[in-house]
Design a protein around this nucleic acid. Structure first.
Length: 645
RNA sequence: GCCGUUGUAGCUCAGGGGUAGAGCACUUCCUUGGUAAGGAAGAGGUCAAGGGUUCAAAUCCCUUCAAUGGCUCCA
């Protein structure tokens, strides 16, 4: 029998007989490891622990803690879910059932049966019962004809549709217990690994994601190798729910919606408006330092402008319907770009003027579909941290880089570290439809963007077919507390609109030349950004951004006058403070200030009044002791200084 | 927009074919207190809106609106 060489992740090379399995390799290291491995990555491909390895390979043994280990675990769990469903509801039809970031789902056609959350317990019990049987997941290569025959006999039209798109020779079935599924694998050794099961939710999902297709029932679930891990996960979900910006926004009186105002049209309450103004002041200062000029534009414009800009054919559906005045259609603006381009065109430009950077917190209106609205994250009226930069090709790189630097500066101030930078490119097949038909410019600008990204060393991912119609872009992706993904900020290249708006500058040779345009919105919209920050800070806005920085708590009414004196001094130092003058005990006032997430509390009683001091309690309980009001004001301002730099 | 779920006081929720309930919040009074809930009283609701069934509807049915979990979408 011939031997093969197996290279492990630590670089060590071991010899095994040809046909060795990952399980046997693990066993040769330790029994404990053999018990814990879920799958194996062999030369980059994840396979079962029981599959024969027939050539020299790089092997890493995947455990639950590995991302691919989890995904294998959950993929197998989806099959277990399917087996349980088939046992409980014979005749159901199966769509697809993949693993996702946390857990898995399976799309099911229940026919006439109406599956509801009341069925969850029964389903979980059945899954656990089947899991205990420790049924092995077995892999079988089948011919296309065999595969079609099996599912035709079973009467599963969705699987047949999938098989028809596969090539003969690369079709495999996986089987466990009484269930067989079309599947690429890999899977767990047996169902016994699954010790804890939770069915999470139910949703409609179009077959193959196409809204023209039938809607199937999607069942989301999650499983774990230990019950304790499931409990921890459920607790984590509970905690995440408490951070949901929709709850916090109501609780902290930041924003509200009203039926008479309309869906997706947030009302900013005084505290929310205060945060907006603080953010704006910060952005304006930063942008001024970065050489931006502020402009202002109206909220509506004539149809002709959106025809010219090219937006209308692409986005008419997501704009509010036009209003007609004197036979002319006017639209609420859904983007600020065209207005800014008109501002650029309003005065002649020389190459000496470039780059020109126009910034505006512009209010836009987008008619998002009703089902897409989501708290502050998807709304119909939005105030965008917008700016457009008009530059020469030679200036592009430094401008693009400067914009990226601005992002990173902001992210540092806000402590944003969990994000993905996504470089969105066009799809050459869709030129002239989804994208402006200028193949050369696409190539050129995408290359420029990639170069800047590489040179600045920022980690990023590239995705096809996600660009704006006028050029490639970089999006910053973030996740809401409940795990939904959003684009927070965007930085886009535009080589199309200068042409459409006949924008030009006079170059050194006295010729007209088109500028390149950058669109950027690092602080997103007020709506999405504050929604994000509510969750990011769990409602505890940092001192500089908190609408209520200090709560003054007189121990009794006797100290009301002294409290007002302190309040006035703080006001003179531009510190935002309030007095809680209710006739409640200090413990109660502290509790309420904590619930309002006020960062600093001043406790004023006999001692403070006679010494002319304040006693400082930080949010969360830290005691900073007593100090003069002046010293406290200096402390607040130095903290703010630290937070902003 | 599509499928599912939900809608009762400012908030969180209970109830449920026979005239509406709790806790917190709010108002007033008592209390004047030192680091996460002092006490009492009071006020507050066309039970989302419209229609239907019924002697009687907040409750059952239908429609609409809104929220919500997903899907699709996201300049």
């Amino acid at each position: 029998m011939s031997e093969i060489h197996i290279t492990l992740p630590d670089g060590s090379v071991r010899q095994y007989p040809k046909g060795v399995t990952a399980h046997e390799i693990a066993l040769s290291i330790s029994e404990g490891l053999a018990r814990n491995i879920i799958a194996a990555k062999v030369n980059g491909m994840v396979i079962e622990t029981g599959r024969a390895i027939t050539e020299d390979s790089h092997v890493s043994l995947l455990k639950w803690d590995d991302k691919e280990g989890k995904s294998t675990f959950w993929h197998s769990s989806a099959h277990l879910l399917a087996e349980a469903l088939e046992a409980l509801y014979p005749g159901v039809k199966f769509g697809i059932g993949p693993a996702i970031d946390s857990g898995f789902y399976y799309d099911i056609d229940f026919g006439d049966y109406k599956f509801t959350s009341e069925d969850f317990a029964k389903l979980e019990a059945k899954m656990l019962e089947l899991a205990k049987q420790e049924n092995a997941y077995t892999r079988k290569q089948v011919s296309k004809a065999e595969a079609l025959e099996y599912f035709t006999q079973k009467g599963d039209p969705y699987k047949i549709e999938l098989i028809n798109e596969l090539n003969d020779g690369e079709i495999t079935f996986y089987h466990q217990g009484n269930f067989t599924d079309l599947c690429r694998g890999p899977h767990l050794p047996h169902t016994g690994y699954i010790k804890a099961v939770k069915i999470l939710s139910l949703a409609g999902a179009y077959w193959r994601g196409d809204e023209k297709n039938k809607q199937l029932t999607r069942i989301y679930g999650i499983t774990f190798p230990k019950k304790s891990e499931l409990d921890a996960h459920m607790q984590m979900l509970e905690e995440a729910k408490k951070r949901d910006h929709r709850l916090l926004g109501k609780e902290l009186e930041i924003f509200a919606f009203d039926d008479d105002v309309g869906p997706g049209l947030p009302l900013w309450l005084p505290k929310g408006a205060a945060i907006i103004e603080l953010l704006e002041a910060f952005a304006k200062k930063t942008e001024k330092e970065a050489g931006y000029m502020r402009v202002k534009s109206p909220h509506i414009a004539k149809e002709s402008m959106y025809i010219k800009s090219g937006h209308l054919p692409y986005y008419a559906d997501s704009m509010f319907p036009p209003m007609e005045l004197d036979g002319i259609n006017y639209y609420l603006k859904a983007m600020n770009c065209p207005h800014h381009h008109k501002i650029f065109a309003a005065t002649p430009k020389s190459h000496r003027d470039l780059p020109v950077r126009y910034a505006e917190y512009g209010t836009c209106y987008r008619y998002e579909q009703s089902g897409e609205l989501f708290g502050l994250m998807r709304v119909r009226s939005l105030q965008m941290n917008d700016a457009h930069i008009y530059c020469t090709k030679a200036q592009f790189e430094s401008e693009f880089k400067a914009v990226n630097a601005l992002y990173l500066k902001y992210f540092k101030v806000f402590g944003i570290d969990k994000y993905v930078m996504r470089f969105s490119k066009h799809d050459p097949k869709k030129l002239g439809q989804k994208y402006i038909n200028s193949p050369e410019l696409w190539k050129e600008t995408e290359e420029m963007v990639r170069n800047v990204l590489i040179k600045s060393g920022i980690p990023y991912i590239e995705v096809e077919d996600e660009a704006a119609f006028y050029g490639p872009k970089i999006d910053i992706q973030i996740w809401s507390a409940i795990g939904r993904e959003f684009t927070l900020a965007t930085n886009q290249v535009d080589f199309a609109q200068a042409e459409r708006f006949d924008l030009y500058f006079i170059n050194e040779k006295s010729e007209k030349e088109r500028p390149l345009i950058l669109h950027r919105a690092p602080l997103s919209t007020h709506e999405r950004f504050i929604g994000f920050l509510l969750e990011h800070y769990a409602g505890k806005f940092p001192l500089w951004l908190n609408p209520e920085q200090v709560m003054i708590l007189p121990i009794s009414e006797k100290y009301q006058e002294y409290s007002e004196k302190v309040l006035n001094i703080l006001k003179n130092h531009d510190i935002r403070a309030l007095i809680d003058d209710r006739s409640e005990k200090t413990g109660k006032k502290i509790r309420d200030a904590e619930l309002k997430r006020v960062p600093l509390m001043l406790i004023l009683g006999e001692k403070e009044q006679s010494d002319n001091t304040v006693t400082v309690r930080k949010q969360g309980g830290e005691d900073l002791g007593s100090m003069t009001v002046e010293a406290f004001a200096a402390y607040v301002n130095s903290e703010i200084e630290k937070q902003l730099n």
